[in-house]
Design a protein around this nucleic acid. Structure first.
Length: 325
DNA sequence: CGAAGAAA
DNA sequence: TTTCTTCGG
């Protein structure tokens, strides 16, 4: 099940865009997914599909979404989910292998009934096609937007970067970021109004919990990787953890059990992340190449991306996008 | 995922 | 008051 109940636990406040400054490690999958579901929805979907049926809504989404960052003092770093770490010229074959490898792993997990592994793989596999991943990366590269390849969940990697101080915020709609230990998470970066700031320290302080206890509470409620205990919502989860200390004590006291509790706990406490990344925050986008890529190479209607490019261009000429160094 | 209404 | 369920986006 989902874990929308975390919203009731997390300390979240609206923050003016102009108060933001620094680097935001964006969960690229979530960010892109947003446009693939919403942008396509209310407009003519054929507009975002080429003659041979290739989805290009992601390109439109990127061009419409990036100005949000550029027009304010925040540099996006796009963190992609685990997959091929290297995107060179001869990657088609290896990418296919990678996909099949995921499929195989999923198959094995299903056969074994390993619910946690299934959930984990599905969260990575979802529905960003290889083409979408590839064209997104290429467009971002032309725009000089940094990309980081996560070994597994992009969410976890982004949180890791924020914890190390290499990013000031994690950008994601997902409350899981909190459980992965992201100090500050920005939500609603795509929509019109101001974003929300989710504060881990404030959350822990408010409930007088440790991060480990917060994770345990979340497991009781239910996460993307496990079903919670029936009858336990945010309120009782917090009070039970507070009373008994940790997950196992709570379960023992109530005579309840939770499937794969230890696995899920480990998933959040010690996620698969890497220190092997590097990026510059001084952006030098090649707008001409980006325009050509989107309109000429992929045939996107120029009108669809005109305003977005203009906004990016204005940001570039006015600020050079190099305020951060 | 969020909102709203039912159920507990 | 809190949790469960359903439905819309």
């Amino acid at each position: 099940m989902g874990n929308a109940a975390l919203r009731d636990i997390a300390v979240i406040e609206e923050i003016p865009f102009d108060d933001l400054e620094g680097v935001v490690a964006v969960d690229a999958h979530n960010w892109l997914y947003r446009y693939l579901t919403t942008t396509v929805k209310w407009t003519n979907s054929s507009k975002y599909t080429t003659a041979d049926g290739t989805e290009v809504a992601n390109l439109v989404g990127i061009i419409q979404g990036l100005p949000k960052f550029f027009e304010h003092d925040i540099t996006p770093v796009m963190v992609f989910d685990g997959g091929p770490a290297d995107l060179k010229a001869d990657e088609i074959a290896s990418r296919r292998e990678q996909r099949e490898s995921y499929e195989d792993q999923l198959e094995v997990a299903r056969e074994e009934g390993d619910e946690v592994a299934i959930a984990q793989l599905e969260s990575r596999t979802q529905r960003l096609t290889p083409t979408i991943q590839e064209t997104s990366r290429e467009l971002l590269r032309l725009l000089d937007v940094p990309i980081v390849e996560a070994p597994a969940e992009g969410e976890a990697q982004a949180a890791h970067m924020a914890r190390r101080g290499d990013a000031d915020y994690v950008g994601s709609e997902d409350y899981d970021a909190l459980l992965f230990g992201a100090p500050l998470t920005l939500r609603q970066l795509t929509s019109k109004g101001n974003p929300e700031l989710m504060d881990l320290e404030a959350t822990l302080e408010y409930h007088d919990l440790t991060l480990e206890q917060l994770i345990d509470a979340a497991i009781l409620i239910g996460t993307d990787f496990n079903d919670g205990v029936h009858g336990i919502g945010p309120k009782t989860a917090i009070s039970e953890i507070t009373e008994h200390g940790d997950l196992w004590s709570v379960l023992e006291a109530r005579g309840d059990s939770v499937e794969y509790g230890d696995r899920v706990r480990q998933l959040f406490r010690d996620p698969n992340v890497t220190d092997d990344y590097e990026f510059e925050t001084t952006l030098e986008p090649d707008l001409e190449a980006a325009r050509a890529y989107v309109t000429d190479e992929w045939g996107v209607d120029a009108g669809e991306v005109e305003r977005g490019f203009e906004r990016i261009e204005e940001s570039v000429t006015q600020t050079g996008l190099d305020r951060w160094t």
